[in-house]
Amino acid sequence: MRAEKLPNSLITAHEIYYETSGRELFSGLNATVRSGELVEVYGPNGSGKTTLLRILAGLHRPDSGQVIRHANSTGFLSHRVGLARLLTVRENIRWSIALSRAHFAEARVLSVLKQFELTSCAQSLVRDLSAGQVKRSALAALVLSDHQLWLLDEPSGSLDAEGEELLCQTVSSHCQAGGAAIVATHTSIALTANRRIDLGST
């Protein structure tokens, strides 16, 4: 049976089954994420959060079931943050914007850099930044890329308390503006999710 498109849905996962090394990670997993929704994927290490996000991103194929992405564009932030270490923060952001075919507006870039406290290191190579600054840079690139759907894998990793708060605000603003986010986490962060997929109990 094919998954049907529901109104405003940005992504639909239908009867996802996936096993690795003979261990079943998910079975019969169904989820639809609509515009404006924030869904938290929660579970301990090894429960399959990253795998689920990669399946939703189209980077892994499930053993059975299907994923249909209706979103105009999808941004994926994983453990590997997707920034070139030998480029500056600005150069990385410029490339991310071009890749997502978003509009490059200098004033907006400066504003987001300021919001993420990256103004002083905008011209620094990513390899010279701290882990927290790298994560902030990746989030800034994601915000400026104007993706409709965000898939975030442990986005709070390496962030301090202030950065974590900024992350929560950014994700909430994105969803309020009509986007959607699926956030995988193993710790409790102050996200006000509409729904939670608990992989620890599957």
């Binding site: 980077l59 994926f76 943050v81 997707g82 920034l83």
Partner: peptide, 22 residues
């Protein structure tokens, strides 16, 4: 290799329409 290690390859592949020109 570098793009795989840095995660930019995943970024390119997730951005469906941009994967070919990239």
């Amino acid at each position: 290799r570098r793009e795989q290690d840095e995660g930019t390859l995943a970024t390119i592949l997730v951005a469906n329409e941009s994967a070919l020109p990239a």
